[in-house]
């Protein structure tokens, strides 16, 4: 018997007397806001991230403006935005090599307005996990259509990605933790600088 079958059998026999399964209550819904994208921009900025708006035409220059002067950059091989001088990830860069690269530019899968969260499902234009976690600056491009109001909406959209076995990275502001003695340490789990470009029709 596999460990999985064994432990599930133990759970089933422990619950043998439970016949009625209480219904799962629906996820609480937040009251809609007037401008979801604006709400998203405010909440992301609350996390000490830089947020700018751009039209599709001006995207390349918005990316260039976001990059620190003379910064080395890595991009996923299938990124549709042109980033002059960027290293294109071929999957062989090690963590040590990525650590010497200043910034990464990627797309995203979903933006969540209520929590100011960006979710990567590491699909097209988002690269593998290591390139989004090791460089110290992440320039993340989110389109206005990708922004949803709340977490349950995002979970609904991400279902197919999870079923395909894709990993997810949920980013809520630059990486920081106060786990140890309540002192704030930045950059433990990911980049210390988060720069979000929201692409949509001119506001």
């Amino acid at each position: 018997m596999s460990a999985r079958a064994e432990i599930l059998a133990r759970v089933r026999s422990a619950l043998a007397d439970v016949t009625e399964v209480p219904p799962v209550p629906p996820a609480p819904r937040r009251t809609p806001v007037e401008d979801v994208v604006e709400h998203f921009a405010e909440r992301v900025a609350d996390y000490r991230a830089t947020v700018v708006r751009s039209t599709p035409q001006d995207l390349a220059s918005a990316v260039a403006a976001a990059l620190p002067d003379g910064a080395s950059v890595v991009v996923p091989a299938d990124l549709a935005v042109s980033v002059p001088g960027a290293t294109v990830d071929d999957g062989t860069l090690t963590a040590g090599e990525l650590d010497r690269i200043d910034a990464v530019v990627t797309l995203a899968a979903v933006g969540i307005a209520e929590t100011g969260t960006i979710v990567l499902d590491h699909g097209p234009g988002q690269g593998r996990r290591a390139i989004t976690l090791v460089p110290d600056t992440h320039i993340c491009i989110v389109t206005a259509e990708q922004v949803v109001l709340d977490v349950p909406d995002a979970v609904g959209l991400l279902g197919p990605s999870v079923r395909q076995g894709r990993p997810l990275t949920w980013i809520s502001g630059p990486s920081a933790t106060s786990d140890i003695e309540l002192s704030r340490v930045e950059g433990v789990h990911g980049p210390r600088n988060l720069h979000v470009i929201i692409v949509g029709p001119a506001a």
Partner: peptide
């Protein structure tokens, strides 16, 4: 929400560890 949350559903080719073991502990 906490800044970085990662979830994964097993192994992803070309991304991260290529072998994952999960230990189920009843305790």
């Amino acid at each position: 929400m906490n800044p970085y949350t990662s979830t994964w559903s097993g192994v992803t080719p070309g991304d991260g560890p290529q072998e994952v073991h999960v230990v189920l502990l009843d305790n």
